[in-house]
Structures are given as structure tokens and as C-alpha cells.
């Protein structure tokens, strides 16, 4: 599973970070950084939650 963020859509509101801080981090420059672009299968549920809860629909999972 690969995590892909559309940075044109992302508004850095850090919701994904609240769901999975090990994968998503909004830094002090207000930009989202993906810390782990290929999280393990055990993180799938959290990643799908992040996809559903991102208000900008900026996150995609590519298998």
C-alpha cells in the first residue's frame, strides 16, 4: 500500500495527523509531510479512515 497526497488539494489542516501521526505530520512550515509513504498492511484501517476523513479528499491509497 502506498500513500499518495494531492498537495494541490491538501490544506494542511492536520486531521490525518490526528489519525495517524506515524504517517502524517504537519510541520511548523504548515506543510504536510508524509513520514511513511508505504505503511504496513496493519495500518490499512487507519489509512482508510484518513482517506474518508480528509475534508479535502487529498489522500489516496494506491495498492
Amino acid at each position: 500500500m502506498r500513500i499518495v497526497v494531492d498537495y494541490d488539494l491538501c490544506e494542511s489542516n492536520a486531521i490525518c495527523m490526528a489519525i495517524a501521526p506515524d504517517v502524517f505530520e504537519v510541520r511548523d512550515d504548515d506543510l504536510l509531510h508524509v513520514l511513511n509513504e508505504a505503511p504496513g498492511e496493519d495500518r490499512r484501517e487507519k489509512m482508510e479512515e484518513a482517506v474518508q476523513r480528509c475534508p479535502k479528499q487529498a489522500i489516496a491509497i494506491e495498492d
Binding site: 489542516n13 492536520a14 490526528a18 504537519v26 510541520r27 511548523d28 504548515d30
Partner: peptide, 12 residues
Amino acid sequence: MNRPRQVMQGRG
């Protein structure tokens, strides 16, 4: 206001 990371940490 323009402080998303802090709001999410506060939410925690």
C-alpha cells in the same frame, strides 16, 4: 487561526 497542528494536538 492558521494553526492546524496545534488544534489537532489540542483535540488530542
